[in-house]
């Protein structure tokens, strides 16, 4: 588990790999930093739950404590920002 901000390099790639493996069934679709994950339906309320659990497990974020917004899951950049700013 990554616990410090110094260790956050690669967060975006880890999340990208997770989303690609878990939520994208079509191999031809590749996501980039600004792919609109919510608008395209790649992340819905259920995949958001598993993504939250992935982040919790791998980066130690406590979603009972931090304030989140649906917009935090808009794209890879916003997800990275959510993780990095909340790693203690």
């Amino acid at each position: 588990m990554i616990k410090t901000k110094e260790e956050t390099v690669g967060v975006k790639l880890n999340v990208k790999n997770y989303i690609s493996e878990q939520f994208i069934k079509n191999d031809k679709i590749e996501i980039n930093d600004e792919t609109e994950l919510l608008k395209l339906g790649i992340i819905d309320s259920l995949s958001m739950m598993t993504l939250i659990m992935f982040i919790e497990k791998n980066y130690g974020l406590d979603f009972y404590e931090i304030e989140i917004n649906r917009d935090d899951f808009q794209n890879l950049l916003t997800i990275e920002s959510l993780i990095v700013k909340n790693i203690k």
């Binding site: 309320s45 259920l46 958001m48 739950m49 939250i52 659990m53 979603f63 304030e67 989140i68 917004n69 649906r70 917009d71 935090d72 899951f73």
Partner: peptide
Amino acid sequence: FENKIQPLHYKVIY
């Protein structure tokens, strides 16, 4: 509701 509760709804139930 959609922005703040729905992202956590099923996770808390889980």
